[in-house]
């Protein structure tokens, strides 16, 4: 297939090399036509002219067909790196293998490849608690890193599941943190996978008054949110205090009663202190 590109650069040589690079051919395979000779110009580069060349070469037909999956949906080839291309192609193959129809977009930010799949009926590719999504995500990151020296992270979302889950996890983390800070007792969250735990940890990193750590073995590993002032032995005494709230409440009630001198509501403060 014959292909022609036109390039403009400071010098003819530069323009040619840009053009053959784009065509992906060697210089002797290309026919170069110089449209405009560049001149460096006179005093201080004034009157400078850029060089323009037109390069024609026989380029091999694109070997890879655009990747289709599902029925007729295609996705844009905005992939910038080989790893991204491979990761995206792999996800597309898996989805079409499972029998999912949808659209696939990807972009790269630093060392992370983001792949988003949208479409109806993505349920099978998400699975219970996102376990199929996690499996696809895991294998895709292996494929992306197969030929890469630096570690590439893959962030895959299907049908917006990850996004919804992230919003939920953030709110869950904040609620647990408020509860831990208020009660002075550690709060244990449900079992989560590593990436979900990471969301919780990073959400609460800036949350005053609590620290987070994980406990247990995969897949039952879970985040524990602890109040900062209730750490270590202090934590035990704090919970001891709570445990003996019934016996301690006698004194507290007496104080409240004498302060407020509202005898009719004597039962209410007692209830409150127990909650």
């Amino acid at each position: 297939m014959e292909k022609t590109v036109t390039k403009t650069a400071k010098t003819v040589e530069e323009a040619i090399s840009l053009a053959i690079e784009e065509l992906g051919v060697s210089e002797d395979e290309a026919v170069v036509e110089i449209m405009e000779e560049g001149t460096s110009g006179g005093f201080l580069g004034m009157g400078k002219k850029m060089a323009t060349v037109q390069v024609t070469a026989n380029v091999p037909e694109e070997e890879e067909e655009p990747v289709y999956y599902g029925d007729d949906e295609t996705f844009e080839g905005d992939a910038v790196s080989e790893a991204e291309d491979e990761a995206v192609a792999f996800v597309a193959e898996i989805l079409s293998g499972i029998g999912i129809h949808g659209k696939l977009d990807s972009y790269r930010e630093g060392e992370t490849i983001f792949i988003r799949v949208t479409g109806q009926d993505c349920g099978a590719a998400i699975g219970r608690h996102g376990e199929t999504l996690d499996a696809i995500s895991y294998l895709t990151s292996l494929v992306a890193n197969k030929h890469s020296e630096e570690h590439i992270r893959v962030s895959l979302d299907i049908g917006g599941y990850k996004k919804r889950r992230e919003i939920m996890l953030i709110s869950m983390a904040q609620k647990a943190a408020s509860r831990a800070a208020r009660s002075g007792r550690p709060v244990e969250l449900e079992a989560m996978n590593p990436s979900e735990r990471r969301i919780v940890h990073s959400t609460l990193q800036t949350f005053a008054g609590v620290t987070t750590h994980s406990e247990g073995e995969e897949p039952q590993r879970r985040v524990v949110v602890s109040p900062t002032r209730g750490n270590g032995p202090v934590q035990t005494s704090a919970s001891t205090f709570e445990d003996h709230a019934d016996t301690a409440s006698d004194d507290t009630d007496a104080d409240i009663l004498s302060d407020t001198t509202v005898i009719e509501t004597a039962n209410d403060p007692a209830n409150e202190s127990e909650e």
């Binding site: 898996i94 293998g97 499972i98 029998g99 099978a124 590719a125 699975g127 376990e131 199929t132 996690d134 499996a135 696809i136 895991y138 294998l139």
Partner: peptide, 11 residues
């Protein structure tokens, strides 16, 4: 192997 099995189950 587990990830492969999970995906095949989905299929």
């Amino acid at each position: 192997a587990q990830a492969i099995r999970t995906i095949m189950k989905a299929k």
